[in-house]
Amino acid sequence: MNAGTKFRPLWQIVRGWRGGGVRTRLRRYLHTVAMFRLQGSKVLAVDMTGDAVKAKNGSMVAYDGQMAFKKLTGGGEGLRGMVTRRLTGEQMTVMEVRGQGTCWFADRASEINLVRLQGEKLFVESSNLLATDGGLRTGTTFTGLRGASQGNGLFTTTVEGHGQAAILSDGPAVVLRVAPQYPLIVDPGAYVAHQGNVRQSFQSGVTFRTLLGEGGGEAFQIRFEGDGLVYVQPSERNTIAGDV
């Protein structure tokens, strides 16, 4: 959270430290929320008025106005976050962009998807995260066997709070809804991110055919149950599961 030029009563600042609700209201009161908008499908434009956003290192392509770039060691999560990221291998090189004007971000002509978070948690691979609002908190969680099947390791990045985030996908991503009656099964290589109150499990369709080398190439899947959204890209990463 960034202090604006406006006067802030002390009680409001103190209340802002607590719950997410008050914090958001306070931020709205100070008008320092960065505006994320898409310019085409591959460029993210962020309008800033003195506030900050976190973005992938080196992803700025152009800006006007005044901007300062600072690398955040350990994803800007403090010493604990830094150690966790080192240990889990879910390393993220993030920079903090602060200033006034418009800043454009892009990464290797990948498609960009905007996600608006209202208190819920977004799970995304650190390599697929392009930018987050300065007020959002990032962290790491354990994903278990699912992470390994995606070829991305056992841990994933979480984004939490109120604000916008931009995620990258190889080709335009589709957003699929998961409802209690309708579980969703996704190929690990095509999974990009998910948000909401979703439980995930790993399911395998390994039969004797797979063992004979006659598998359909869809031996492993991730099953999502609960209530939320899953982002799926029209392309598959190279995974162990894709070969069998």
């Binding site: 085409g40 591959k42 460029v43 080196g58 392509v61 152009a62 454009w104 892009a106 990464d107 290797r108 002509a109």
Partner: peptide, 9 residues
Amino acid sequence: AVYVQASEE
């Protein structure tokens, strides 16, 4: 005007 591409490649 300047033309900018959506990639660093």
